[in-house]
Design a protein around this nucleic acid. Structure first.
Lengths: 257, 257
DNA sequence: CGCCTCCTTGAAGTGCCTCAAATAATGTGG
DNA sequence: CCACATTATTTGAGGCACTTCAAGGAGGCG
C-alpha cells in the first residue's frame, strides 16, 4: 500500500495517500513521533498543545519522480513539507516556456496560497515522502497556536528573502554568475540539512536547472564544462559536483570584478 | 516641521520623523482615525482591541524623492505601509548592477525580515508619506492579535505570489512581454487603489523600470516607442501611458502565439 | 536663456539562444 | 548479464535579441 500512483486525465501521474516506514504514512497520533526531521521541521519546538493540534491533521504522501502534487490553478488543499526527496514548483506559459520558481528539500515548507488557489505546479524531482497538512484546518489552528502561526510567518519571510536573492540573479547576473550562485546555494542548503558541503548532489536534471536559472540546457552544460576546465569543480557524474574552489565560485557568483 | 531630511554619512538623504496633515504625523491615539487608506489598509477590519494595540505603536514618516528609508543590511526596525507616494526596494551588486525587486504604493506593506536585517534597500520614488510600525513591538502583538497576525501572513503570501509571477517574467519573457506585463500590472494595481485603469501614471523613471524588468533603459525606451508605433498605447509624456489596446497588450504579455 | 537631467534614437558588438549532431548515461527485454 | 533502445548531456556552428557605446532631443529649473 505504499506510494500508489493514479493516472490523471492528462496521463500525468498523480500521487495518492501513502503508507510507509520512514515516518510517512502513520497518520494521527504517532506520526510526528517518528518524524526524522528533528529541528529542521517547522513544527519543531511547538508547545505541547499546539503540536497536538497539528498532529491531529497531519498526513503523508510518497512520490516517485515526476509525480504531480498539484497543478497551477488547483484548489490549495494542502501545505507540504518534504521528509525526503526533492520537489520543484514551476509556472508555465501558453507556448510551453517554463520557469521553475523553487526547489524544496527535507524540512522545507511550501504550498502557501493567498487566495485558495495554487499559483504554480508542484512536481516531484525524486522519489521521496512529504508531510502534509490541510490548509483549511491549518488556518483554524492559527488563532489558538501563536507559536505555529509565528513560525509559518517566519517561513514565508524566509521564502521572500530567497525570492529577493533569486530576482537579482535572474534580472542581473550572467550565466556563469547564475551557475556559481546556484551551486553554492545548493551546497549551503545541503549543509543546513546536515549533508556534506562539497560533493553536492544535484538531484534535478540540466533542464530543471536551466528553467530555474532562466537559461537553456546548453548554456548550463557549457558553463559547467568551463568551470570544470578552470579547475573550479569536478563532475564525476552529471548529478554530482565536487566544489574544488568554493571561494572562487563565490567571487564569480557575486560578480567579483 | 514636516518632511525633515538629514544627510547620511554617505551624502544620501535619510528620512526623519514627520509631522503633517494627511493623517501622517499624528502619532498615537488619533492617527489611525485620520488614515485615508480605507479598506486598502492592512489594519482594516481589525477588531477593536487589536486595532488599539496597533495604534499605540503606529508612527509616520514623509519622504521626498530618493530619500532612503533603510539600507540593505540595516537592522529591520520598522514595517512600512505607504499612505501616498511610491517606494522602490532593490538589491545592489558590488559593481553597481541593481535589481529592483518591488514597487510599493498606497496600502501596500513592506519591510518584512526573517532575521532582523533588511535584505534590500528601500528608497522613495516620489514624495509621500508612510505609516510605520516598530517590527519588535509588532511581534509582541501577534500572540494576542490573531486577526492581525493572520493578515500579515496573508500579505506576505500575496507578496510571494507576486514573486512567482515576476520570476517567470525575469526568467522567461522577452523585452516586449516584460513591458506589456509591467504596464498591465501597474494599471491593475492602480484600479485596486481606486485610480483609473487607463491613463496610468508611471511614477518611476526609465532606469527604475529597466532595473525592475532586468533590461536596460534603452531597451525599455525602444520597446515603448514600438508599442506606440503599433497603436497599443500613447505616451503624452514619459510618465503617463494611455493603454489603447489592453487586450493586445495582454496577449503580448502572455506570450500569445 | 542656458544648464542639467531624462528620455529617445542610432550603430555596432556580444552573450546567450537556436538548430544540429555526437556522446554518455540509463533503462529494458531477452 | 548483455545488446539494444531511449533519454540525458555535451559539444559545435551560426544567428539574433538585447546590450553597449554614442549622440541627439525634450522638458524642467535657476
Amino acid at each position: 500500500m505504499t506510494g500508489r500512483v493514479a493516472l490523471g486525465i492528462d496521463g500525468t501521474r498523480t500521487i495518492q495517500e501513502g503508507r510507509a516506514r520512514d515516518g510517512c504514512g502513520r497518520e494521527g497520533n504517532d506520526a510526528c513521533l517518528q518524524c526524522n526531521l528533528g529541528d529542521l521541521a517547522f513544527c519543531h519546538g511547538l508547545p505541547e498543545g499546539e503540536l497536538r493540534g497539528l498532529m491531529s491533521i497531519q498526513g503523508c504522501v510518497r512520490t516517485t519522480p515526476q509525480d504531480t502534487l498539484f497543478n497551477e490553478g488547483d484548489r490549495a488543499t494542502y501545505l507540504y513539507s518534504p521528509l525526503s526527496g526533492a520537489v520543484k514548483i514551476y509556472k508555465l506559459m501558453a507556448d510551453g516556456r517554463r520557469q521553475i520558481t523553487g526547489f524544496f528539500f527535507r524540512g522545507d515548507l511550501f504550498g502557501f496560497s493567498p487566495n485558495g488557489l495554487h499559483g504554480y505546479t508542484a512536481e516531484a524531482v525524486t522519489a521521496g515522502s512529504l508531510c502534509r497538512f490541510p490548509a483549511a484546518k491549518m488556518e483554524l489552528l492559527y488563532p489558538d497556536s501563536p507559536v505555529l502561526a509565528r513560525e509559518v510567518l517566519r517561513r514565508s519571510m524566509i521564502k521572500l528573502a530567497h525570492f529577493h536573492e533569486h530576482t537579482l540573479l535572474l534580472g542581473r547576473k550572467s550565466a556563469p554568475e547564475k551557475l556559481a550562485s546556484f551551486l553554492l546555494t545548493l551546497s549551503q542548503r545541503a549543509v543546513e540539512r546536515g549533508d556534506s558541503a562539497s560533493p553536492v548532489l544535484i538531484p534535478m536534471g540540466r533542464s530543471d536547472v536551466a528553467d530555474y536559472l532562466g537559461l537553456t540546457i546548453e548554456t548550463v552544460s557549457r558553463t559547467l564544462t568551463k568551470f570544470k576546465a578552470s579547475g573550479l569543480l569536478e563532475l564525476p557524474n552529471p548529478s554530482t559536483v565536487a566544489l574544488r574552489d568554493p571561494a572562487a565560485l563565490r567571487r564569480i557568483a557575486d560578480g567579483g570584478i
